[in-house]
């Protein structure tokens, strides 16, 4: 199997690994970087649980090969909050609004919402629902998640 070297920055830290060319970015992050907060709910691009920021853009890491991310700056769920475990405004809003139950979908939602509110600080309800529609949650019925986005927007996400 053809091996390639991937050099990326993940949550501010340089990472370099030799991986199979077919390895997905999600598996690279989970296995080679030991960052298991990025979850796999479908591996076919629908559920959004694997969402990470790739050079600032929210992408589905199950649909990207690690080699395609070579040279990129990546932020995973582990890099969203503060280094001492402080919650980001979006993370705090998910907690405050009961935006999670089992928590499996949560990393993908938090990363997606972080990018969304960065680009649209004062969204309408319809824009919120539209932005969330690319992520699946089976536990919450989305009520707490939608409320969390409103709460985070009100708190002012920088």
């Amino acid at each position: 199997m053809k091996m390639v070297t991937v050099t990326v920055t993940v949550n501010g830290e340089p990472r370099r690994a030799s991986v199979e060319a077919r390895k997905t970015l999600a598996d690279f992050l989970r296995e080679d970087c030991a960052l298991t907060g990025t979850h796999l709910g479908c591996e076919h691009g629908v559920c959004g649980a694997c969402t990470v920021l790739l050079d600032g853009a929210a992408v589905r890491s199950c649909l990207v090969f690690a080699v395609q991310a070579d040279g990129a700056d990546i932020t995973t769920i582990e890099g969203i909050g503060g280094p001492g475990g402080e919650l980001s405004p979006v993370q705090a809003a998910f907690r405050d609004a009961h935006g999670l139950q089992c928590g499996f979908c949560t990393p993908g939602f938090v990363v997606s919402v972080t990018a969304f509110l960065r680009d649209n600080a004062d969204p309408t309800d319809e824009e919120i629902r539209d932005a969330l529609s690319g992520n699946l949650c089976r536990c919450t019925g989305y009520q707490g998640i939608i409320n969390a986005v409103r709460l985070a927007a009100r708190a002012g996400v920088r």
Binding site: I80, L87, Q91, G103
Partner: peptide
């Protein structure tokens, strides 16, 4: 449960 889960530090079986 939330502080670990919202930060990606939950521990599921695949982890």
């Amino acid at each position: 449960e939330d502080p670990r889960l919202v930060t990606g530090h939950g521990r599921y079986v695949d982890d």
